[in-house]
Design a protein around this nucleic acid. Structure first.
Lengths: 194, 194
DNA sequence: GTCTATATTGTGATAGAC
DNA sequence: GTCTATCACAATATAGAC
């Protein structure tokens, strides 16, 4: 698979369009025609950049995960203690959702996982694993500093935190009056602090 | 729209099949052909029972919500105090998910909401509203009995609880090693108890 | 209620000219 | 790299016989 570094300007615009479409309609809800229209080229030109839909979606997920990793590093630089880091993490989800209720790319693909090519699902797994690893480390750090309650385990708290944020996006879509990911994160954080 | 009471045996089997397909592949991931194959009749016969796909999906969501309401009443009868009720509530999600990682019908449809007919989305909203109302009442009761921490508000806790369970199903699908909804519920409950 | 047959549209993907 | 043209197939939906 092509690395992002070597992507042409057009290929990037294709991935941009596909990312947006996946967040709004899901893998089964968008077509090459939709991407072509959004980029301003014709359908077969998309195939020149990504020969199959699975390959395109996998690239979307891969780039999304990569960017997420970079943002996690940014949080580590800007925030020193665990509660502040978790709040900033929740804000990432809020930012995405605030833009026309866009879903997390891998939240959407995770829901659809059963009808997705393995090529795509494996990227989704990578995303969740990277997030859980980071969250678990942050929570453990907070527990050692006595800023976060010692029980449940850091891994259990991390997973619940991620689930609440992903779920907030899904529930928020189906409801007019939802609070959104930031609020869900705030509630959890309030109950986790010592 | 037809009430469930007046549904023929075949119509019910159609709804059963559609429900299962939505839980596994989503609205955009199943076809009348899939339903027909599963029920054992031909495609046009499905149209005789539900003239459009939107109508069929709306019926699936409606029946799902109705059955959920009945299970909530069952929980009230079997469990007296709020923490026990919340644990039983989480178990409902766990039961669904334990069966081949099936998603909540309205969790899946909520994620897809942007590309769904209004007829379907409105049923999804109804589901979430019914759940939040019930959860909020249960949490408030627990707070009054000093079994659940007084802050955050009952509505905020209720929404976070629902989000964590819905999210656990989505994340669980994308990951091999996920803990599932019951575990997410247990973590939250542990942090909420006084 | 169910069927065969068909209309119509959309899909992912390919061939080959420029 | 992009295009026109086209393929093979699947989708929702309808008409009309039984």
């Amino acid at each position: 698979m092509m690395p992002f570094a070597g992507m042409s300007a057009t290929a990037e615009r294709v991935v941009d369009a596909a990312e947006c479409l996946i967040q709004q309609h899901g893998y089964n809800g968008f077509s090459y025609e939709d991407v072509a229209r959004q980029v301003g080229i014709k359908k077969p030109s998309i195939h020149h950049h990504f020969s199959t839909k699975a390959e395109l979606a996998a690239m979307v997920a891969r780039r999304y995960t990569q960017r997420f990793r970079e943002q996690l590093h940014g949080i580590e630089e800007r925030h020193a203690i665990a509660p502040a880091r978790l709040k900033a993490y929740a804000a990432l989800f809020e930012q995405t959702f605030a833009d026309e209720k866009r879903l997390c790319v891998c939240g959407m693909l995770g829901a659809e996982a059963d009808s997705l090519p393995d090529e795509v699902t494996s990227e989704v797994t990578r995303f969740f694993k990277a997030n859980l690893d980071w969250l678990t480390a942050v929570v453990a750090e907070g527990q050692q500093a006595s800023l976060i309650r010692p029980k449940p385990s850091s891994a259990a708290i991390a997973e619940t935190f991620l689930c609440a944020l992903e779920g907030a996006m899904v529930v928020g879509r189906g409801m007019r009056s939802s609070r959104g990911p930031a609020a869900a994160g705030a509630v959890l954080l309030a109950t986790l602090r010592t």
